[in-house]
Simulated assay, not measured.
Amino acid sequence: MKTLFHSLRLLLPAAALLALVSCSSTSNISMKVPDQLSTATALPVTGKQGFKQTREFGPFATTNVRSGWLSTSGWSAPVGRNWLPVAAWYDQSRAKRKFSFTLQPQAGAPWHVQGAYYSWSQDLTLAPNANSSVGLTLNQEDVYSSIIQGPGHQHTWQLVIESQSRLGEGKQFARGTLSNGDSLLQVRPISQMLRRDGRTMNMPFGVPVGYEFVRPNGSVVGAVELFGRGRVWLSPRISPELQAPVAAAMASMLLRQD
């Protein structure tokens, strides 16, 4: 269950969800949009109703959304019988889930996306007695990857987002890249919220609530908010060649957040 939870919440960790739930109303707070997108229109994400697997924002809509079964494997073994004062078990687990969808712009040909989640975890469980136990995560790695193919398969981009956690080193929250071999965008977490009174609020422990897409020169071309119904911002200066793959990457993140 632990691996399943991590694999499904790679982009918006549990700590962020708990912090948002603790607020009196999520309508009173929103993700702080990067300053470079202050003139961009906030595009609300629609289509999220129950188990309905579609998303729409601005001129883009997802179709043909397919999600495979979650595949898991793992093993456990006792450790330290001769040198630990308590019973202990070492656990190793893996999880994988594939998905695909099509992003259809209002004008233009569709873009096709195929990807997968991968999760790997090493844990140690200590049991001082039969009625209590303590679990320690020794190593946790999560990878989210998708291939984004443009019309005629002539334009191919790859989105890769990774997070990791090692005992004693703290957690590195998910971040990654969107690249086509020639162009590279950094996908960076956003951990600041904006209150209704205009004041900013940092999320506990720096957990992310959304992500920004940044060029090598530091210019921000887009951002996506992942909590609530979600919102999307695309820079008014983003090129037509870049707009569709960035939108496809955002749609992929929104769909896999569920």
Rank of each mutant, 00 (worst) to 15 (best):
M1G: 14
M1C: 14
L4F: 15
S7G: 14
L10D: 01
A15C: 10
A19K: 03
L20P: 11
V21K: 02
S25E: 03
N28C: 05
L43G: 05
F51E: 06
P59F: 07
A61L: 10
T72S: 06
N82H: 15
Y90D: 14
Q92S: 07
R94Q: 11
A95F: 11
F99G: 03
S100Q: 07
F101G: 05
Q104I: 03
P105W: 10
Q106D: 14
Q106P: 05
G108A: 10
W111Y: 14
Y118T: 13
S121Y: 05
L124P: 04
L126C: 02
L126F: 06
A127H: 09
A130Q: 01
S132L: 07
S132A: 11
N139H: 01
E141N: 12
V143W: 10
Y144Q: 08
I147D: 12
I147G: 08
G152M: 07
L159D: 10
L159C: 05
Q164G: 09
G168S: 01
F173L: 01
D182E: 13
L185M: 09
V187R: 09
L194W: 03
R196Y: 00
P204L: 13
F205V: 12
G206N: 04
P208L: 02
V209Q: 06
R215Q: 05
S219K: 01
V221A: 03
V221T: 04
G230P: 12
G230H: 03
A247E: 13
A249F: 04
A251M: 07
A251H: 07
L254F: 04
L254H: 12
